[in-house]
Amino acid sequence: MPGTIIEINKLTKLYNGYRAVNELTLSIEEGEIFGLLGPNGAGKTTTILMLMGLTEPSSGTVRIAGYDSTREPLQVKRIVGYLPDQVGFYENRTALENLVFTARLNGITEEEARKAADELLDTVGLTEVKNKKVGTFSRGMRQRLGLADVLIKNPKIIILDEPTIGIDPKGVSDFLGLIKSLSRERGITVLLSSHLLNQVQKICDRVGIFIKGNLKAVGKIEELAGELLKEGNIEIRIAVKEELNEKIMEKVKALSGITEINSRKREMFIKAKEDLSSPIAKILIDSGFSLLHLSTKEYSLEDIYDFYFGGGAADGKAG
């Protein structure tokens, strides 16, 4: 069993009294892909900077592969690759030169650096433009070059801050696919932050939902969905021609699997664990009601996101 590689304990960062990160406790296993999700300004970047030892925490500790990020940042930086959200390259240097520069800062000799850079540029699909100046690169190409840049030091962990920002949908899925396959092939632990759940949920083993400096929930996406969907994951809306009465409501309530039911004159809102639309329709029709409208809505990942990000409104944001 792989062990814990990142251990965050009660990590707190205060900015002029404002808690940007509040007592964050989290551990990440070796080899997993962890997604740190949250809206802009939730404290994701601050957390990442503290992990890298680039910002000092106000209190709490981070241990990466046994090293304390605050006290031994050099050891941490040796094994962690970090891709900032606005990755910058030396524009008047070529892609290859930029990579070789990073490699040499990591103590790799020039010759080896060139070899490694060539291989990585091939992996990320930039071989054809390796001798072009980075100034001419598109956002997607920069992002791929950024990935090569974090990989050139042969890291155990890579931390990607908003890696999908500003790339087109096709580019995003290619890029994330690349991250996933690299992580699986080389056993690299990946921590990525994003505010777009639907983009990263495909590759993350686990996610943590981070809002206003607080970690609201951690787990596999299905588990998080389960937590939300305890209240029922199907919403059924029914409208009838006649006015609803107590008797019919009792009949409907008697069905198993209903978690919540509300009615208004001629309308009914039901939350259920499964799709009960046809039995309900049958009851209504058998009791002499004429059905005007019946619709069902299933909760999706988007709703999980809305649920947590929207401050936990119980019904999420309906369509």
Partner: peptide, 8 residues
């Protein structure tokens, strides 16, 4: 930030 993320 890219340079400072290197071990130096």
């Amino acid at each position: 930030s890219r340079v400072l993320a290197q071990p130096l």
